[in-house]
């Protein structure tokens, strides 16, 4: 393995490596000189230099909003940055359908749901609905997907029951609400139940949502995670390629 060349970077304002950052935060102080100084000291303590508290807005009830620019001396070596991402190729809807026909030879059944307390279907709808999102049709439009969208507030038990009955190939779970890490609790519960019921390895488990990354998904025991900016094409391609790579599909 060749050692990649070191590449030290810092934030960029208007001069290379000037370290300039834009900051915005609130403190329980009054919007006066003392409050402003507290904001400056806080940034100094974090390690910023050249601190300019350029905006001070009263938020009432004893709070003040600060807007600041400051320089950081912190830097990172970009050559050492690694990240886990979904690495399967992304195909168009037509290509995915052809791929499934050629490599698997049967339609894939996919269940989608917002599980447990989550009532927000915007994410799962964007991936599954006929209409899709931003000119990418959803899985319902694919010829080789039997896409079943169970909607919001589906219990983990119901989702797994349906998936077992219909011999699902994949389960898509959307989690939009993340307050107090409720999404982690919900996602963990689903995987634990799936394992207990012996379903974990019978189908793909995929999660998505604005605060979900592939890395987090892997950590929680899922096959993949799709965050903001993902489309049906990303998810469909991943399912098609992953299923066709499964040993039992290859044999058949």
């Amino acid at each position: 393995m060749t050692k990649s060349k070191e590449n030290i970077i810092k934030p960029y304002g208007d001069t290379l490596n000037d370290g300039k950052m834009q900051l915005s935060f609130s403190l329980q102080v009054n919007p006066d000189e003392k409050g402003k100084e507290a904001a400056r000291l806080l940034l100094k303590k974090i390690g910023f230099d050249d601190i300019d508290i350029c905006g001070v807005r009263e938020l009432y009830e004893g709070f003040t909003h600060f807007i600041a620019y400051a320089s950081t001396s912190a830097s990172i070596d970009y050559s050492k940055v690694t990240v886990k991402t979904v690495e399967t190729e992304v195909m168009s809807m037509e290509d995915t359908d052809e791929y499934i026909q050629a490599h698997i030879g049967r339609p894939l059944t996919v269940f989608g749901a917002c599980i447990e307390s989550d009532a927000h279907t915007v994410g799962i709808d964007a991936i599954m609905n006929m209409k899709g999102f931003n000119h990418r049709y959803g899985l319902e439009r694919y010829k080789y997907f039997n896409a079943i969208n169970l909607g919001a507030q589906v219990s983990c038990e119901d989702l797994l029951k349906r998936a077992r009955e219909e011999k699902a190939d994949a389960i898509l779970v959307s989690q939009i609400v993340t307050q107090k890490n409720i999404h982690i609790k919900n996602l963990t519960r689903l995987i634990e139940l799936a394992e207990a019921e012996g379903l974990r390895n019978k189908m793909l488990f995929i999660c998505g949502g604005p605060r979900i990354s592939h890395e987090l998904a892997i950590e929680l025991g899922y096959d993949a995670g799709f965050g903001t900016g993902s489309y049906a094409t990303d998810v469909a391609s991943f399912i098609a390629i992953s299923i066709s790579n499964r040993p039992d599909e290859k044999d058949s």
Binding site: S24, S26, R57, L59, H65, P210, T228
Partner: peptide
């Protein structure tokens, strides 16, 4: 698109 609103 991120969180329930903060005070600011």
């Amino acid at each position: 698109a991120i969180h329930t609103p903060h005070l600011a």
